[in-house]
Amino acid sequence: MNDSVLTPERILAAAEDVLRRYGPGKATVVDVAQALGVSHGSVYRHFASKAALREAVLRGWLARSMAPLQAIANSRTPPPARLRQWFTTLRQAKRDNVLGDPELFATYSALAAEAGDAIAEHKERMQQQIASILAAGMASGDFRELDPPAAARALFDATARFHYPGLSHLWNQPGEDVAFTRLLDLLLAGLAPAPTPPRRRK
């Protein structure tokens, strides 16, 4: 490849392929450069270090995983159904990643361990999406008055059993789908506004 047509996007695509083939422990910038047919110096002109390149790969992967969730958060679906769909989509995406392609997920987990800031920002963005759904539900009267950011953190933590990769060994147990549905039912019931007490007859 001619250096003049080398772009960050091409480098990142090649880096993802190299990481998948060799794993994060063995993949090098030289491997990426060879896959592109350029010198490793050409890669360094776009990414200052191996760590910067690996973090950029991780951020790209996180951004792609966020897109479906952002689309749900931005939708016009009634907030209770939107919140249920958001958590259901998050859970399924995690299951697909962890259980469907464990080797690739292990690669990204290794990258994540090196880039704590990227992961913290990713979690913050997800919680912001939840908060936006909660705020929409308050405005529509579907949810009671609450502090959306604080409630979003609580909901994210309460559902971690079903989307935190560290607990993936539990995900294939019998009754998982039922347990997840029951938890969402309970959480949504807790978000609903209190019923108006009936008026007393004179």
Rank of each mutant, 00 (worst) to 15 (best):
A192C: 12
L134K: 03
A71M: 13
I130D: 03
V5E: 13
K50F: 07
T7F: 05
D117C: 08
S4N: 09
Q34G: 04
G141C: 09
V98D: 01
A189R: 15
L99H: 06
L62V: 00
R125D: 08
R95Q: 14
P165A: 06
A35R: 14
R201L: 13
A13K: 13
P174F: 05
L184Y: 05
G190R: 09
D117K: 10
G100P: 05
E145Q: 15
A93F: 01
K50G: 06
H169D: 09
V29M: 14
R59H: 03
A63N: 10
T181I: 09
R91I: 04
L186W: 10
A115V: 02
S168K: 07
A160G: 12
I130G: 03
L134T: 04
Q173W: 00
V57A: 12
G166N: 11
L12K: 07
I133L: 06
K202D: 13
L62K: 02
P68Q: 09
Q34M: 12
V178S: 12
A48D: 15
Q34Y: 04
Y44I: 09
A189M: 11
H169F: 12
L19G: 06
L134W: 04
L90I: 11
D185T: 12
N74H: 12
R95L: 13
L69N: 06
R10A: 11
Q128V: 10
M126S: 05
A115R: 02
G25A: 14
D96P: 02
A110F: 00
L191D: 07
F87W: 02
A115T: 07
A13I: 09
P195H: 06
A131M: 08
R82N: 05
A110K: 11
F47Q: 08
H169I: 03
G37E: 09
Q70S: 11
F47D: 00
D96C: 02
G116S: 13
Q173D: 13
D157R: 12
V43H: 02
W171R: 08
L170H: 11
A152T: 06
T181Y: 00
A48K: 15
A14R: 01
P79R: 05
G37M: 01
A13E: 13
A71Q: 15
L83I: 07
A150F: 04
P8Q: 08
A73M: 08
R91G: 09
L111N: 03
V29F: 01
G100N: 08
E114Q: 15
T196D: 14
R199A: 14
P102V: 09
M138D: 01
V18H: 03
D3G: 00
L19I: 04
R54Q: 14
P8R: 11
